[in-house]
């Protein structure tokens, strides 16, 4: 007997992500899902961003790693609420893992929640967690061929931060090429060139985040 089904295989996750999203909306919280390969600078970017914005915005962080709480400890030093998820092997965060952290947060006291995903350019792009948008980092040491090799993440993200531009003199990588390839896959992508080491380019990113929080808030009030 043939049975026609037609169901999205990830519908269970999508449903939980939608429920998460409804809670974030109710609490007037901007949430972004930060993705990159391991070592591209996700935690460094967060440290810098928290330092720059914590006077204006109340920020919370969910840290996703396969093992260890080193990242959460780095973020906790900034004096903001942070919860570490250890996936115990899984290469991505999913809606359910995010939901399990809710009891640890007071969302009424937050403006911005950042989900730092497991370092991986493939899998996290496939699993929604309830975010407003996905943000990704590509460091220049990884090479200009990454958009072409990992198109899904570049296609799904709203903003790309090209990090470690202070190392450009030492690596064979063209920022122009990264931008060109990225815009081919995702013509609407907002792109920042930054160095978390020297601070170059970060002010534009901070302003962009401020604007996103503001825009989200006024959109919800209407």
């Amino acid at each position: 007997m043939k049975v026609s089904v037609v169901k999205n295989i990830l519908e269970a996750n999508d449903r939980i992500a939608q429920e998460n999203r409804a809670i974030f909306d109710e609490k007037d919280l901007l949430v972004f899902n930060l993705m990159s390969s391991p070592g591209a600078g996700k935690t460094s970017l967060l440290e810098k961003t928290i330092d720059a914005l914590k006077e204006d915005l109340k920020i919370g962080v969910i840290e996703g790693d396969i093992q260890s709480s080193q990242d959460a400890e780095r973020i906790a030093e900034k004096g903001i609420p942070v919860v570490q998820i250890n996936t115990g092997g899984a290469c991505h965060l999913d809606g359910n893992m995010i939901r399990d952290t809710f009891k640890e947060f007071d969302f009424d006291a937050l403006d911005l929640l950042v989900v730092e995903n497991v370092g991986n350019l493939v899998c996290p792009a496939e699993f929604k967690v309830g975010e407003d948008f996905k943000a990704m980092i590509l460091s220049v040491t990884e090479g200009e061929d990454k958009p072409a090799k990992y198109p899904l993440m570049f296609h799904e993200s709203k903003v790309l931060l090209i990090n470690k531009i202070d190392l450009l003199p030492y690596v064979d990588c063209s920022v122009e090429k990264i931008k060109e390839e990225t815009l081919k896959i995702n013509p609407g992508m907002t792109i920042f060139e930054i160095s978390c080491k020297t601070g170059e380019g970060l002010d534009a990113w901070y302003n962009w985040v401020r604007e996103e929080v503001k825009t989200r808030r006024s959109a919800r009030k209407q």
């Binding site: 007997m1 043939k2 037609v6 169901k7 295989i9 990830l10």
Partner: peptide, 9 residues
Amino acid sequence: LSIVEMEVD
């Protein structure tokens, strides 16, 4: 990423 059909008995 969908399941479209199953054949079962």
